[in-house]
Simulated assay, not measured.
Amino acid sequence: MRLRPSFIALPVALALGGSSAAAAAPAGSSAPPLGPDSPAKIVAKVALPSAGAAREPGGEAGWQLVWADEFAGSSIDRAKWDFDRDCWGGGNSERQCYTDRPANAAVAGGLLTITARKERFAGPALPAHMRTAPDKAAERATRDYTSARMVTRGKAAWRYGRIEIRAKLPAGQGTWPAIWMLPEEQAYGAWAASGEIDILEAVNLGVACKECPGGRENTILGTLHFGGQWPKNAFNSTETNAPGVLDGFHTFGIVWAPGRIDWTYDGRVYATKRRGEWWSAASRDPDAPFDRPFHLILNLAVGGGLSEERGVKGVDETIWPQRMQVDWVRVWQCRPVAASGASCKGDR
């Protein structure tokens, strides 16, 4: 989920092949690692792997469950989740105000439901970390949509592990569901110097798409943001077509270890990024900034740069409300055991 100052909306550019592909080569190749002089925007496109053709971390020994929310109660567990409450627009010119109202986020029937609604709403113009001064705290904004952005910030954060979320995504032009992570502390500086891990993003699912299998938008994205503080930031993203993504619930995840992050869809790794495919302006450690604890974020945005620049453009005002439903969130960490067969240490 790209965070940028509200006055800027940068397009997503593709850096495929040529020097960009060479710069992003995995560790162990002859290509140099990425750095400040490398392309700021790299997007690779891959095919989903078939059964047996990719790592399946859920079948490995040694994973220990360390945190979970099964959404089994009748209300959101405030010991696990907090809410962002603002009408900032995420730095992407998104169109919603985020609230903590049950109308926008609620638990029932074993599911968390985040609902984006078309309704006028007023709230703080800036996110909490930007409204510490009295004049900033007093600024208000009014938007035409509401939604929710739930965070584990201050309650749970992890450095390394296997993180999976089983969710059902919304459809329509202007929808932007996201499952992602931000650093618990900005050890290397303000965004994006301290990093961002996007486990899952999708925009405009189900909208007509000539390039997509089946003729409908079914692209999912996994992305890292890093480098320096905006505007000297960079990102490295992988996109894949997931033709069944709108058929119901699917599991989105990452496996994060020192120097390596894998992205999974329904348990299979479809993308991998290694040290050398990201960089830090504030550290010479090749694992930085992805060597510190990160917290989890679940949100459903309305509009914004990524969604409005793709598909048929803009926001379809006739499709609301739209919902992202979450069956469960689970976090494991690797406790390797002496056993035959695959271990959670994987190919490290």
Rank of each mutant, 00 (worst) to 15 (best):
R2L: 15
R4P: 02
P5L: 06
L16M: 11
P32G: 08
P33I: 11
P36G: 15
V43D: 06
A51W: 04
A51T: 07
G58L: 14
W63M: 09
D69K: 07
S74I: 01
A79F: 14
Y98N: 02
A105W: 11
L111Q: 14
I114E: 11
K118E: 01
R120E: 05
G123C: 08
P124T: 10
T132A: 13
T132S: 12
M150W: 03
V151K: 13
R159A: 07
P170K: 03
T175P: 11
T175E: 11
A178Q: 05
A178M: 12
W180G: 04
E185N: 11
A193Y: 02
L200Q: 13
L200M: 15
L205A: 15
C212V: 04
P213F: 13
I220A: 14
T223D: 06
H225S: 05
H225F: 13
T238H: 05
I254Q: 04
W256R: 10
A257E: 15
P258C: 03
I261W: 03
R268V: 06
T272R: 09
A281K: 08
R284P: 00
R284E: 04
D291Y: 07
L296Q: 06
L298W: 11
R310H: 05
R310M: 12
E317I: 03
R323F: 00
R330A: 03
Q333N: 13
P336Q: 09
